[in-house]
């Protein structure tokens, strides 16, 4: 009897803690969305009201009028999609080259690549800034995309997956008159599409949320991405918190939607790769 009630007690304690944690986790998101739908005076009401008395969906259009957020949004989509696609192609080619094909010095080169993982990206921004400006790429999409076309970490990860495919499959394909190029796209890629789509999603999230580098290399409205537009809007919008929260929601909600659809795959990907966003 006593054992049972002790167990019930600890179970309720677990639920209590988990619920508290969940509320703490979700509250900022919830508050962001609710604020973004409130009227100007309601926002600064004390004590605050949870739900808006009138749902101000027009805050979003007002925010988009106040700043070119729509353009930023489109820019972000374009950069994210292009960057992720190119990264995936370059990474796939390299992972295949380093796993399946042989060339002189392959393992040495791969070792050097792995060593570059130790370099913090923040350290490279100064010199890369100089490079980009020398290339005349300042304030272009190329500046946002090209430096991230090769991800050493994802090459490493994908190479591990490629190496798990049995050699005999490659030999069978060779005998079946299948070229290396065709083998990569017709056999390796379809077999590893799960891993590749995980890499694509994780990369897309990182690209969507990128901040420091885009802040440095873009300055015109037509090239800026949403994260930069958001911090700029923060200084401009001042105390219009409902508009600021609407702008923040525009950056956050697409990712949340994607996450809700694909959270299993995303979590599995994080577990496998162990990378911190």
């Amino acid at each position: 009897m006593r054992y049972k009630s002790a167990k019930a007690l600890s179970k309720s304690l677990i639920y209590l803690v988990l619920t508290l944690g969940a509320v703490t986790t979700i509250l900022p998101f919830l508050w962001m969305i609710l604020t973004s739908l409130k009227g100007g005076t309601e926002v600064i009401l004390m004590p605050p009201r949870l739900f808006p008395s009138v749902w101000h969906f027009d805050n979003y259009s007002r925010a988009m009028e106040a700043a070119p957020l729509a353009t930023y949004f489109v820019n972000t989509v374009v950069v994210t999609v292009t960057s992720t696609s190119l990264m995936l192609i370059v990474t796939t080619l390299a992972a295949f080259g380093f796993s399946r094909l042989k060339f002189p010095g392959r393992d040495v080169v791969f070792g050097i690549l792995l060593a570059t993982l130790m370099i913090p990206g923040e350290m490279l921004i100064i010199t890369n800034f100089v490079t980009i400006s020398r290339l005349g790429w300042m304030d272009t999409r190329a500046a946002l995309i090209v430096p991230f076309m090769a991800s050493v970490f994802y090459i490493y990860l994908l190479r591990q997956f490629f190496r798990k495919v049995p050699d005999t499959l490659y030999y069978a394909a060779k005998v079946d008159a299948c070229s290396d190029w065709r083998y990569l796209w017709k056999v390796m890629v379809p077999i590893n599409k799960q891993a590749m789509s995980t890499i694509a999603i994780l990369n897309a999230i990182a690209c969507w949320n990128a901040f420091l580098w885009p802040l440095m290399v873009t300055n015109s409205e037509t090239k800026r991405v949403l994260s930069i537009g958001l911090v700029q809007f923060q200084t401009e919008a001042g105390t219009d918190y409902e508009l600021l929260m609407a702008a923040a929601s525009m950056l956050v909600l697409p990712i949340i939607l994607m996450y809700l659809v694909m959270h299993k795959q995303i979590i599995k990907g994080v577990t496998q790769s162990g990378i911190k966003g």
Binding site: L169, Y171, A172, K174, V175, A177, P190
Partner: peptide, 19 residues
Amino acid sequence: PPEKRGIGLVFQNYALYPH
């Protein structure tokens, strides 16, 4: 090269394309 030899090859682990 193998593809020009006109051979068929069968492996212990079958080596079928799983997809």
